[in-house]
């Protein structure tokens, strides 16, 4: 495991030639109170770079601003200070280059599974026939071939989340943001979906920022884990995860993974084991 110093998370000006794909530069976020007074500082000075094709997870305690950081990266929420840059361009609003997978699926219940996936293709202006074909292709990739004409209410939670993933992937985004996508699922379904996700990612290698509470999930999926602390939200460690790919279920029994899990746990809860 390689631990970077916090200063090295953002490249210095001299390193512009190897510009990172995603850069968060001094992001701060506070929500003003109802009376307009400056509110609690949720995130303070959040800075890190992510290279193209990297799978990066963010773990941290509840309320540390992980999901807020993701919304800021997507352009859904402007930061109070600092800026997000994707490929050198400052992010000011959401873009179709970015796919977002929500924790609570956010499927449209009156649309069939196929039409839910096709929604992102409608936005891209793809014609009806091509939309149906491409939606089927993405559904096949997430293991839902043959469910095109089902309604979301007819699917289990895990299947609904796979529809949400297919909808985001159908945009063929350069950056995929995933906000605790398996957080609402039972333990077994979560493990199965993690393995599906790792296979899909290894075949496509889009840049992913994955927010989770689950340390093992982060280590199993990622090339890199950013550990955040709360009050205010900030990165306290940047951990490279160099397990070889392709990864499979056997990795979960790896002693080094258990060590890394314990180390991240200690970072999240300092002093708990003393």
């Amino acid at each position: 495991m390689t631990r970077q110093t916090l200063d090295s998370l953002v490249a210095s000006p001299g390193e512009e030639a190897t510009r990172p794909f995603l850069r968060l530069d001094g992001i701060g976020m506070s929500f003003p109170t109802k009376e307009g007074a400056p509110g609690t500082l949720v995130i303070d000075g959040l800075s890190f770079d992510i290279d193209e094709g990297q799978f990066c997870s963010i773990v941290g305690p509840s309320g540390c601003g992980k999901s807020t950081a993701l919304r800021i990266i997507d352009g859904l929420q402007p930061p109070s200070t600092g800026q997000v840059m994707i490929d050198g361009q400052v992010v000011r609003k959401p873009s179709l280059d970015i796919g977002f997978v929500f924790q609570h699926y956010n499927l449209l219940p009156w649309r069939t599974v196929g039409d839910n996936v096709a929604l992102s293709l409608e936005v891209l202006g793809v014609d009806r026939k091509a939309r149906a074909e491409r939606a089927s292709r993405w559904l096949e990739l997430v293991g839902l071939r043959g469910y095109e004409d089902h309604f979301p209410a007819q699917l289990s939670g895990g299947m609904q989340q796979r529809v949400g993933l297919a909808r985001a992937l159908a945009l063929e985004p350069r950056l995929l943001l995933m906000d605790e996508p398996f957080g609402a699922l039972d333990a077994q379904t979560r493990v199965l979906l993690q393995e599906q996700l790792v296979k899909i990612w290894e075949s496509r290698r889009a840049t992913v920022v994955f927010v989770t509470h689950d340390i093992e999930e982060a280590l199993f999926l990622s090339d890199r884990v950013l550990v955040m602390a709360a009050n205010p939200g900030r990165v306290v460690a940047d951990i490279a995860v160099d397990f070889p790919r392709p990864r499979d279920h056997a990795l979960r029994a790896d002693a080094r993974l258990a060590e890394m899990k314990a180390e991240i746990w200690d970072l999240l809860h300092p002093g708990l084991h003393q």
């Binding site: 990739l141 997430v142 293991g143 469910y147 007819q154 699917l155 289990s156 299947m159 199965l192």
Partner: peptide, 10 residues
Amino acid sequence: MSTVEAPVGA
């Protein structure tokens, strides 16, 4: 990739 869960309607 195989389907891992039965649909609710089944």
